[in-house]
């Protein structure tokens, strides 16, 4: 049977409870917004296949419960992720402050070379804004990751966010693959060109189809 995609990327949405992770995902996967949403219990995922530079990329996006209490369970799913969306709510200062805790969580549980991206959601609620765009940008620079403000409700830049993250993963992956097939001094395999200090790299497990 022919494959319906070239790459499978596993992404993860994390962030405080109520910042809109499920809504961002719903907007991206169904292009819809539901005002009567419910809190996420446990873990769930959605699939969307996108076209990126002539490649079909299947995005499997995992959505987690945000409350601290469930972190012991949800962190088990960090490990396989190739990309992580860190989501905060621009109308909620606390959710922004907590991003650094989420980053620490990633460092402890995800593979070292996971692609990260910072998402300031609910940007349509300008009148309730507590976190300026500049602070979001500043934090992203601090961590060396990309930043984007989105609105799941008003459908602002959600597509762009996921496409950007997917492209970054693809670029990183293809670069590694190229290195692997054309090693600088020849004869080395992917595993050898991979720094040994990163044994948990997702690249070594990444699904190539």
């Amino acid at each position: 049977m022919a494959k319906t995609y070239d790459y499978l990327f596993k992404l993860l949405l994390i962030g405080d409870s109520g910042v809109g992770k499920t809504c961002v995902l719903f907007r991206f996967s169904e292009d819809a917004f539901n005002t009567t949403f419910i809190s996420t219990i446990g873990i769930d995922f959605k699939i969307r296949t996108i076209d990126l530079d002539g490649k079909k990329i299947k995005l499997q996006i995992w959505d987690t419960a945000g409350q601290e209490r469930f972190r012991t369970i949800t962190t088990a799913y960090y490990r396989g992720a190739m990309g992580i969306m860190l989501v905060y709510d621009i109308t909620n200062e606390k959710s922004f402050e907590n991003i650094k805790n989420w980053i620490r969580n990633i460092e402890e549980n995800a593979s070292a070379d996971v692609e990260k991206m910072l998402l300031g959601n609910k940007c349509e609620l300008e009148e309730k804004r507590q976190v300026s765009r500049e602070r979001g940008e500043q934090l992203a620079i601090e961590y060396g990751i990309k930043f984007i403000e989105t609105s799941a409700k008003a459908s602002i830049r959600v597509e762009e966010a996921f496409f950007t993250l997917a492209r970054d993963i693809k670029t990183k992956m293809e670069k590694k693959l190229k290195e692997a097939s054309n090693p600088p001094k020849g004869g080395h395999q992917l595993r050898a060109s991979e720094p040994q200090k990163k044994p948990t790299s997702w690249l070594s497990r990444c699904t190539l189809l």
């Binding site: 109520g18 809190s39 409350q67």
Partner: peptide, 19 residues
């Protein structure tokens, strides 16, 4: 308190009683 407020606002809102 913050968590309670977040969650009650997304609990069974499709039921008429909570809509």
């Amino acid at each position: 308190k913050c968590q309670v407020i977040k969650d009650v606002n997304r609990t069974d809102r499709t039921l008429e009683f909570y809509a």
